[in-house]
Amino acid sequence: MSEQPIRVMVVDDHPMWRDAVERDLQAAGFDVVAVAADGAQALARFTAARPRVVVLDLQIPEPNGVEVTRRVLEADPAARVLVLSASGEQADVLEAVKAGATGYLVKSASKADLLDAVRRVAQGDTVFTPGLAGLVLGEFRRMTVPADADAGPAVPELTERETEVLRMVAKGMSYKQIAERLFISHRTVQNHVQNTLRKLQMHNRVELTRYAIEKGLDAD
């Protein structure tokens, strides 16, 4: 780790859980610059504390985790959001990822997994669970149902290699195992995974644009 400790904010409405995560992060040398119990607090304290990584529970009082993800990344695109979810709210997780979250962990992940995930997300890596990879795969399969040819910007599709990598992640293989299986570097695997996320977020923007055009919101 670099000499500068990573600045982290923990957002969770369960005090017991919040404290435990804060303690673990501090013990591991992270700088917990803020904690928040709901969306409004999170947004206010984010602006003041400028953390590098937001460890975020999706089930928080309004505004919810998805909205917080979107607003936080709007305010500071360099920030990173790691979603930590208790009940595996699948639709919400997907929405958070579309809104720009780059990591996802279930709350039952071990302490070591959590610390590792925060570190990796801070470096700009993406942290995928097999479950999230399955969701993203499903989402891309649904998206490629052909739309009208002239319905506006094209939907970004996954390359064959990206799909292959994503399927392997969904089957529980580590990046290292995937790299060995496909005879590519660990970095390349990481890039493929990152690309799938980027395309998913791009698709989200395409969809928003399309929606705006349909609704005539961008009419001058």
Binding site: M16, S87, S110
Partner: peptide, 21 residues
């Protein structure tokens, strides 16, 4: 039920994290 489950999940997750060490 969801609220109750969610609370239980939190505790279970927490106990689990306290695990091996």
């Amino acid at each position: 039920a969801r609220a109750v489950h969610d609370g239980v999940l939190q505790v279970l997750g927490l106990v689990q994290r306290a695990g091996p060490e």
